[in-house]
Amino acid sequence: MTAPVRVLVCDDQDLVRAGFTMIIDAQPDLEVVGECADGRSSVELANRLRPDVVVMDVRMPVLDGIEATRRLAGVGVAFPVKVLVVTTFNLDEYVYDALRAGASGFLLKDAPSGQLLHGIRTVATGAALLDPEVTRRLIGRYAARVRPADGTPVEVPLAPRELEVLRLIADGLSNAEIAASLVLSHETVKTYVSRILTKLGLRDRVQAVVYAYRHGLVT
């Protein structure tokens, strides 16, 4: 049998941590190996427990989730850790910064438990998790902070079709939705996404979204 995905839960609210832990531990393919209430502890525990995924809150004492994510993504641990940010949209205006810091995706705290489990499994495989609706609202809301000052798109090393796919990724569309929009096969879209990430030197779809907004490719 495949070893279960090892999860570290980091949230300063006891009830939230307990709820996440109960949901995750009920799954045969997932295992909570530790809990903590601040970002500094998440980095310390990650070095000691070597989790596959950290479920991370943003607003916490001692060290916030953004800086903790930056360290967990490769600066402060002996090995990179996947981070899934789980936050309250109306309160946490810094989630965009967490994505830039290296988070593999984010969900809302009031999302169904099935979405949390799917998110953990998704980022554990090395893929990125971007809830389309949340992406459109959140990234769109704060994109002005990272767009070029004059609003002029910069030249990027992509073919026209690749650029089109990148813009759809930035709009929060899944591969299936992109395929339907451009009348392409799912495999063709996957090839385009892989090519885009390689050409731009990006890790995953999250970084692709950040890149698109930073370079003024979407409005």
Rank of each mutant, 00 (worst) to 15 (best):
M1S: 11
V7A: 10
C10Q: 05
D11L: 10
D11P: 10
D11N: 11
D11S: 13
D12K: 07
D14Q: 14
L15E: 04
G19S: 09
D25G: 09
D25I: 01
D25A: 03
Q27T: 02
P28D: 07
V33E: 00
G34D: 07
A37G: 14
R40W: 10
S42T: 00
S42H: 00
S42R: 09
L49F: 06
R50W: 10
R50F: 12
V54F: 06
V55S: 09
M56R: 08
V58F: 08
V58I: 15
P61N: 04
P61G: 12
V62K: 06
G65L: 00
I66F: 08
R70A: 15
R70Y: 00
L72G: 07
L72M: 07
G76M: 06
A78R: 08
F79G: 01
L84Q: 05
V85I: 12
V85F: 06
V85A: 04
V86K: 03
T87V: 10
T88C: 08
T88P: 04
N90T: 14
Y94K: 13
L99N: 00
L99F: 13
G102M: 07
S104T: 07
G105M: 06
K109W: 00
A111L: 00
A111Q: 12
G114E: 13
Q115T: 08
Q115L: 08
L116W: 02
L116C: 10
T122W: 02
A124D: 00
G126F: 01
L130H: 04
D131E: 15
P132T: 14
E133G: 08
T135G: 09
G140A: 08
R141P: 06
A143S: 14
A144F: 07
R147D: 03
R147I: 04
P148S: 12
G151A: 09
T152M: 04
E155F: 07
P160S: 13
E162F: 11
L163T: 14
E164L: 10
L166I: 12
I169C: 02
D171A: 14
L173D: 09
L173E: 04
E177Q: 15
A180I: 05
L182T: 10
V183C: 01
L184M: 15
L184D: 07
S185E: 01
H186T: 14
E187M: 13
E187T: 09
V189F: 12
V189S: 03
T191Q: 15
T191R: 11
V193W: 02
V193Q: 08
S194Y: 05
R195E: 12
I196A: 02
T198K: 13
K199V: 05
R205L: 08
A208L: 06
V209R: 02
V210A: 15
V210F: 03
V210T: 12
R214W: 01
L217T: 11
L217S: 05
